[in-house]
Amino acid sequence: MDPQHLNLIYLIIAAAVATFVTRIGGYVLITQMKQIPPRLEAALNAVPAAVLTTLVAPAFVYGGFDVAVSMFVAFAIALGLNLSTLRMLVIGWVVVMLLRHLVL
């Protein structure tokens, strides 16, 4: 196995360990700590939305016209009709395919 591929295997193992730590962490913590400081709790609460937003906003701005339009349409319809992520994906995919193969 070439070293670059080996690095990917290590990366996956590290990701698996990190995930397992989050899954056992709360159990370990709850037996140690009585209360989490409110500001720390607010910061921790914000982590997932903050991280995921950084994967959305640049794609919207730099991804090109077709990507931006399909993201916006999927977002608007999913928000308006309270759709699941899966339906939202289907809508975005349909819009981008229409734009690429019929319109542009």
């Binding site: 939305a49 903050a50 994967l55 077709d66 990507v67 399909s70 992520t85 939202m88 995919w93």
Partner: peptide, 24 residues
Amino acid sequence: VLLPIYFLGLVMGFRKRDRFLPIV
């Protein structure tokens, strides 16, 4: 286009949390 929309859907899943809009 699927990954950014998937992540967008995940972000929207957190919209009931405190201070969602300013954080995002």
